[in-house]
Design a protein around this nucleic acid. Structure first.
Lengths: 131, 131
DNA sequence: GGGTAACCTGACACTGACGTCAGAGGCAAG
DNA sequence: CTTGCCTCTGACGTCAGTGTCAGGTTACCC
């Protein structure tokens, strides 16, 4: 499987795949002519990388975690576990932040709904709003 | 209250406060000499802005929402509500993404724990790990 | 063999929320 | 009046993940 196929199946750009490899997050076998070749497992790998990115992890952090994920041996496991847990907790508290922000938005929406319901001076169709 | 106090109380940098004003997210009264002056209410405002930023909203998006938040009048409310709800939903689905990513991390952690428990060849203290 | 689509490396551009520095002015205290 | 800290504007730097372009090679189909 070549880079274009991998990118398409994982739903990312070719550029991104090269970048992941550049950052040491993804490995490829090279064809005699130098083209990158991947197995089907790499599709999941790339999807997983994407999820870590959207979770706010940086390339460097991911790079630190991945060797431990790939080979969960005794060599790695102790510090790896700590690192993983640490990132998990960071993510968890971030999730809580977002939830409370969502609550704020909900409150605002509710407020706006009431403002519209209560003080209805004109008709119910508010036109040409710039918001 | 001058900009330094506001920044300190809201827990952001002076630079950020100026940036928020530049983006139209915050207004200030100017002293005769041109210095920015704020009321105590602005502290909460800045904190709220921070929350929206960490929720992944851009300055532009926030700028579009704020006028509606500030004056929840009939003029704004219709499109404002839609915009707010839209961002709320985006945030909500993002939260779900993060939660599922957290689940993945949990699974990895569990996996690593089992790997350590099962195949314990050496002693239980894994030293000098580079992870 | 020729055309076209995909691939390679390398490098620069961009976006967004700031950091940071320069040069100038404001303001309370000694 | 001076010292020291805060503030002003304006501009450039940063970081990270990608887009994009240039110039060249490779793979596949007719």
């Amino acid at each position: 499987m070549r880079i274009g196929d991998l990118a398409a199946q994982a739903g990312v750009s070719v550029r991104s795949v090269r970048y992941y490899e550049e950052q040491g997050l993804l490995t490829s076998v090279r064809s005699p002519s130098g083209q990158r070749l991947y197995g089907t497992a790499e599709v999941e790998r790339v999807r997983f990388l994407q999820r870590l990115y959207t979770a706010g992890l940086s390339s460097r952090t991911i790079a630190e975690l991945l060797p431990c994920v790939d080979t969960p041996s005794l060599e790695h496991s102790d510090a790896a576990l700590e690192r993983l847990s640490q990132e998990r907790d960071r993510l968890s508290s971030h999730i809580n932040d977002l939830i409370s922000t969502r609550d704020s938005l909900d409150a605002l929406i509710e407020l706006a709904r009431r403002a519209r319901a209560g003080q209805s001076s004109g008709s119910s169709s508010a036109t040409h709003s710039t918001c």
